[in-house]
Computed example of a mutant assay.
Amino acid sequence: MPEPLTRDRPAAPPETGDGRPPSTATGFAALDALPRTADGAQVWAALGRAGLITRAYRDGAIETGIDPGGLADLLTAVDARCSLAATLSVSVQLATALPVLATGRTPSARRALERALTGRATVALAATDVTAGTDLTALRTQVRIEDDALEVSGEKDWIANTTTAESFLVLARHRAGRHFTDFTWVLVPADAPGVTVRPADTALFADSGVGHVTFEGVRLDRDQVIGRVGFGLPLFARHIATERLAGAQWGVALCRRILADTHRRLSGRPHGTGTLWDLPAVRQRFAACLLRVRELHALVAEYAEPVAVHHDATAAATLKAAAGATVNHVLTECGQLWGAAGFTTGGIQEIRAQAALFGIGGGANEVVLGTLADAAESVLAGLTRPGTLP
């Protein structure tokens, strides 16, 4: 009987023509040296030491923007070998935290970016507020900007990389109100006086360093502002689109891996005079999963450039909504097909619970569907000629 899926023993990726797994054949051998229990910080360090982080960006330069192909390769390689939580840690930094940090032009911002790109430090994107959730215009974390100093106060919850971060990218309001110009990014060192970190109470995502962070009158130099004052939300909107692209790419990789493992199990599990794979009902359920993943794959192929180059919010929302629905469908079906073996420690049912993140993190399904509804007329207009972008 095939071994069950486990978080600590990621399923081996399929071999290439030369007998090596894809990530090794394409330059990701550094990941093979990691222990099976490597957390997000360890994975990030390995990628940085091997010079692999910059592969996610065009021409290897973060200022030129995300390279969709390079980002997909990185996420696929990490997903093939590491836990879902560790992959989350890497994904958030690649798609959102580092591109936001790269807008900083001060020496402190450049140092933080250089350390992150080389894997010597992790960066936590502290946007979600303890009082606001996905409604960022309601956040209460504040930054008081003086002539030569800043003071940050507030609290952020459920932030990936919190317990490992060398610095936090904090989205804070610099004045009262809900206007999009009322918010600014600030780079806060994790060891600054007034910063308190607490790990989140979750075994499912411990490997991502997820936690809560409190800022109590944290005093900083004025040059810790990232980007221009008042451009916090527009900057976030640009890069949350990329994070949603990354989530959809990762969703394809995860579903493909889970389906490949499930297919091997079904093909090797005796049933009657054949195997479980011989049962028509099983084959049909599996085929329905294949269809859903191919649909998501096609959407990623269609919208990767509009999101990466033009920061298309509607395309990004489409990818986010599709990824959440597809991952949930595939993991639910595969969980059923694995039967009792799926309940082993680190098995498919645990992965299924972790994968619920795809419908919540980076904007809940309801939020992104609202964005899609707002663009209903343009989306419908784009459907009049199949094969063209809406």
Rank of each mutant, 00 (worst) to 15 (best):
I145V: 12
R244Y: 09
T275V: 15
V170I: 03
L52T: 03
A340I: 14
P14W: 05
R81A: 01
R81Y: 05
F183P: 04
A11P: 02
G272A: 14
A287E: 13
E146A: 14
A126K: 01
T384E: 07
R228G: 14
T26C: 03
G17D: 08
A11H: 15
R110G: 01
I145A: 06
K320F: 11
A301G: 10
L245K: 12
R385Q: 12
Q354A: 09
G227A: 06
T314I: 07
P68M: 15
A313M: 09
D148M: 10
D223I: 00
L290D: 15
L276G: 12
A25T: 10
I66E: 12
G363V: 01
T164K: 04
T275Q: 12
D223E: 12
T76N: 08
L266K: 12
E63V: 00
R9G: 02
L291S: 13
R198N: 03
A112K: 04
L98R: 14
F236E: 14
R115Q: 08
F343H: 11
R173N: 13
A323C: 13
E302T: 12
P21C: 06
A237D: 15
T96C: 11
V327F: 02
R115L: 13
H179V: 06
G361Q: 13
T345F: 09
A29D: 15
A376V: 11
F236M: 15
G370T: 15
L299V: 04
A77N: 07
A373W: 11
Q142H: 08
A138Y: 05
E302V: 06
V90R: 00
G209A: 01
W250F: 04
L389E: 08
G104A: 07
P22W: 04
S89K: 12
L52Y: 08
S83P: 02
A376I: 01
A50H: 04
H263N: 10
A85M: 03
G232Q: 12
R173C: 07
A260P: 06
T344E: 14
L75Q: 10
H263Y: 02
T122M: 09
H179I: 03
A97K: 10
R9V: 13
R110C: 01
T162P: 03
D148V: 13
P386V: 09
G194R: 00
N161Q: 06
T131N: 07
R352V: 06
L259F: 05
R294A: 09
G232T: 11
T141G: 05
A364S: 09
D39P: 01
E166S: 08
G51H: 13
G363K: 07
G51P: 05
A132I: 09
A206I: 11
A29W: 03
A132C: 05
G347I: 11
L357F: 10
A25F: 04
A109Y: 02
A381L: 12
R36T: 03
D135W: 02
E3A: 14
H311A: 10
